[in-house]
């Protein structure tokens, strides 16, 4: 980070060059300003456009002509949170395992290649995951849902009619889990590789098995990093659109995870309805998008705060 310190001032030699310096600095500064302006505009435009839906009395057509926005948006928010929670529950243990595998278990020669292969998963476009989830995974899940319903139907999560198409919120969660897996793996792997080697070797030298070494040195060091990578993956899962849109057959809120035509998420609701929407409906959908923006903003800010405090700690250690 020392390279960010100001560069040595160069003496002015001729005026044309001095002008060049000023222009170049001005352009660089403008680049920075544009970023701030764009982000301000994102918030501003979304807010302006969603006011008719959030406060119909003041800005919209009046309360009698508008739907109850909060009543409309809370099932969508609940659905978004549920599907992301499923994805994280499924992806976190696997991502931990894969990153430990790459950092501590895989044969050295293959570790980089494996890391690259996992990174490729992240490069696959979401619409392809959506198609895969819709046409390959959903049919596979049907017998599992039937079994869950028959054997665990007393739990509200598995109550209700099991889906015959497999296009449920649980299937969406599975596809999302596959999508956030590479992100989480990449972040965790970085952190696991940063663990001080002396600590690891000290543990091994004291006779610890490899697993004990990981428990004693890797996990305590990486705890903050693991939490923040989960949060960043959560941010990604909350905003993921296509996989859910294509897999889920949406409906109102339901506790059942195995029923088709139940639950919906904010991004899928927008993607399904926005292309045909106009007027007040458009305002409602943009307002829903604003809610999503706020949720992901909070999640990401928390994650970044953890990362930054961790980075300071890591700098102090090395």
């Amino acid at each position: 980070m020392t390279t960010t310190s100001p560069r040595t001032k160069t003496p002015a030699r001729n005026t044309t060059s001095a002008v060049g310096d000023k222009v170049f600095k001005g352009m660089s500064w403008t680049g920075g300003v544009i970023i701030l302006v764009v982000l301000a505009f994102v918030a501003l435009f979304l807010l302006t456009r969603s006011l008719p839906a959030i406060a119909p009395d003041t800005f919209g057509p009046g309360a009698d002509q508008a739907i109850d926005f909060w009543g409309y948006v809370w099932p969508l928010m609940a659905g978004t949170v549920i599907v992301s929670a499923i994805a994280l529950l499924l992806a976190t243990p696997v991502a931990m395992g894969v990153s430990l595998f790459i950092s501590h278990y895989a044969p050295r020669r293959f570790a980089n290649t494996i890391g690259y292969v996992i990174d490729l998963l992240a490069a696959i476009p979401s619409v392809v995951y959506g198609a895969w989830g819709m046409l390959v995974i959903a049919p596979l899940m049907v017998p599992i849902y039937q079994w869950l319903h028959d054997n665990l139907g007393f739990i509200p999560l598995f109550a209700g009619d099991p889906s015959t198409t497999g296009r449920t919120i649980l299937t969406s969660g599975v596809v999302l889990a596959v999508m956030v897996l590479p992100i989480m793996t990449a972040l965790c792997r970085e952190i696991f590789l940063q663990v001080p080697h002396l600590q690891e070797e000290a543990a091994l030298g004291l006779g610890a098995t490899r697993w004990e070494m990981i428990k004693m040195t890797v996990f305590p060091f990486a705890r903050a990093g693991i939490i923040s990578s989960i949060m960043l993956a959560l941010g990604r899962a909350l905003g993921e659109t296509m996989a859910v849109t294509m897999v889920l057959s949406p409906g109102g809120f339901s506790w059942s995870l195995i029923t088709s035509g139940a639950n919906a998420t904010i991004p899928s609701e927008i993607a399904l309805n926005f292309p045909e929407a106009f007027g007040q409906r458009q305002a409602e959908l943009i307002a829903a998008g604003l809610m999503l923006f706020v949720i992901t903003l909070i999640v990401n800010v928390i994650a970044r705060a953890i990362v930054n405090s961790h980075a300071k700690k890591a700098e102090g250690l090395s």
């Binding site: 994102v42 941010g235 905003g239 999503l292 903003l297 800010v301 970044r304």
Partner: peptide
Amino acid sequence: DVMTGIPSIVAGLF
């Protein structure tokens, strides 16, 4: 950092 986390559909709406 905040922009990195903007959901893609929100960018579209913007």
